[in-house]
Amino acid sequence: MLEGKFEEASLLKKVVESIKDSVQLCNFVCSEHGITVQAVDDSRVLLVSLLIGNEVFSDYRCDRNITLGVDLKSFAKIIRCGGNDDYLTLIAEDSPDSVTLVFEDKNSDRISEYSLKLMEIDNEFLKIDDMDYDSVIKMPSIDFQKICRDLSTLSESLQILITKDSIKFMAEGETGNGSVILKPRTDIDKPEQSITVKLNNAVNSTFGLKYIADIVKGTSLSNQIVIKISNRTPALFEYKLQSGYLRFYLAPKFED
């Protein structure tokens, strides 16, 4: 049986809102370690990988592995019924047909209970090996969101160039071009404002901005985004959770 209680419903709300436009049907695999999701978008370009570690929950038990096949659009509708500050408990039997969501208002005795019918979802699992990336950058997630939104007004593609002392984001379009250059900086008072670059090799990679527009929906999950890039392989965009992560692997574009 699964019983996982979030101190605040807002975390799961944010997670679901962050991925529901990238993938619709996905299996939430629950184990003693927490809840994981892996799913690829319909165009097979973007892979979503989520781990909500058991330490995120104020109470968590899952005796054996349970898979919850969820339609995220329906899940999002139910999850919006609860208040952000409510306790949220997910409950499912060992071979469940449905998952129950219990919202408890902390300021009153109100308890709201919803159940979502589950689906059989046949999704393959891709093996992603840990690898050394050519470059790892860490920067404020909100800045990355703004840069990508600004440059998406010009182009469908975002070029990212990384050297040891700068990160350059570029977009070239029919109506004009744009670029934003960032330099590494350490902010001691506000570490979440820092920008760091670890470089093994200089990077020059191009990505579809429509996918990045979905990725930056994770911005509210973390003050910082970690971007790991190697030339000619998928880049990893990561929002860290208190325990776990939301990762997006995005396949690059190449000059043909």
Partner: peptide, 14 residues
């Protein structure tokens, strides 16, 4: 032109 690659070209399923 510029070509969009897919995730499966890099990772294998099991």
């Amino acid at each position: 032109g510029i070509k969009q690659t897919q995730i499966e070209e890099y990772y294998y399923s099991f």
